[in-house]
Design a protein around this nucleic acid. Structure first.
Length: 291
DNA sequence: ATGGCTGAGTTGCTCAGA
């Protein structure tokens, strides 16, 4: 198996993001791409991007809706055994939503996920979020050993993953039950490969469009690449592509890019992460509130 | 003191996002 570059990106409407997505594919040349918030039905997705993606040798598994949600996997290292959703017993709100699609790409089971937002702690949306995460865990637990779960988890795993923990008191994305649900998923043996590579660093993947949050680097790390042990051992690089958040017409999320070495013949053992460095000082800024 | 942005359909507004 050759080296593989995997990326995940919440594009916040693939229709609006075409002028950013195609040049980004050409520049970064990922082999496997997980997309979230495509906000497009499958036939419209094919009409919009089918030719452009085929030109770049990508096979496509799109799972969308007319208006909201929507996920996809693009791959030029194979795209087999496509599965839509989380299985027959997956929770919906109230019905099924297009929030997960899985495919086997280059020998790896890849899952693109858009975890429900949760809106307000202890609301119906919040309980749906927790139930959805439990169903995701069940599906991954039943899957193959070589697995990548990539996407917008709408959870900041720790307080290091938000610009100011005080700004998020009482909000979703940081509550203990959400973090516990994520920890239970990771307890299957999934490694948060960006945090493992950059322990203690200030690393965000989402910045609110409002109030110049990006330019002040006031964000959250909620887009994750979770890798099972045999895949995590192959990680050569793992980083957030902040360039894609700059300029005109960006998504409010940046892509996460992970380079995997070719699969070893034998077990080379775990890669030792570099020593931790202190987190840079955080600014005391009030979180923009919804009207 | 408040809103600050972007995208979607129900368009000149409301809902959703995080």
């Amino acid at each position: 198996m050759q080296p593989v570059r995997v990326a995940t990106w919440n594009v916040n409407s693939v229709k609006q993001r075409v002028p950013r997505l195609l040049p980004w594919l050409d520049e970064r040349r990922p082999d496997v791409v997980c997309l979230q918030e495509t906000k497009l039905a499958d036939d419209a997705f094919r009409d919009l991007l089918g030719q452009e993606l085929a030109k770049r040798d990508y096979a496509v598994a799109a799972h969308g809706e007319a208006t909201w949600n929507g996920v996809a996997v693009l791959s030029r290292v194979g795209l087999d055994d496509v599965l839509v959703g989380l299985g027959d017993d997956a929770p919906g709100f109230p019905g099924p939503e297009a929030r997960a699609v899985s495919a086997t790409c280059g020998g790896i089971r890849v899952v693109s996920v858009y975890v429900p937002n949760g809106r307000v702690p202890d609301s119906e949306h919040y309980r749906y979020k927790l139930a959805w995460l439990a169903a995701l865990r069940e599906m991954v637990a039943a899957g193959p050993e070589a697995t990548l779960v990539c996407g917008d988890f709408n959870i900041a795993p720790t307080d290091d993953d938000v610009f100011d923990p005080d700004a998020y008191v009482g909000e979703t994305h940081v509550t203990p039950p959400e973090r516990e649900a994520l920890a239970e998923l990771q307890a299957l043996g999934l490694h948060d490969v960006v945090r493992d590579r950059w322990p203690g660093e200030r690393v965000f993947t989402y910045w609110d469009y409002r109030a110049g949050m990006f330019h002040q680097d006031l964000g959250m790390r909620i887009d994750l690449v979770l890798a099972s042990a045999p895949i995590a051992r192959r990680v050569r690089a793992a980083w957030v592509d902040r360039q894609a958040r700059k300029g005109s017409g960006p998504s409010d999320h940046a892509p996460v890019i992970v380079d995997l070495d070719e699969a070893p013949d034998g077990d080379i053992g775990p890669v030792v992460p570099p020593p931790s460095r202190p987190v840079r000082k955080r600014s005391a800024v009030k979180l923009p509130q919804s009207p």
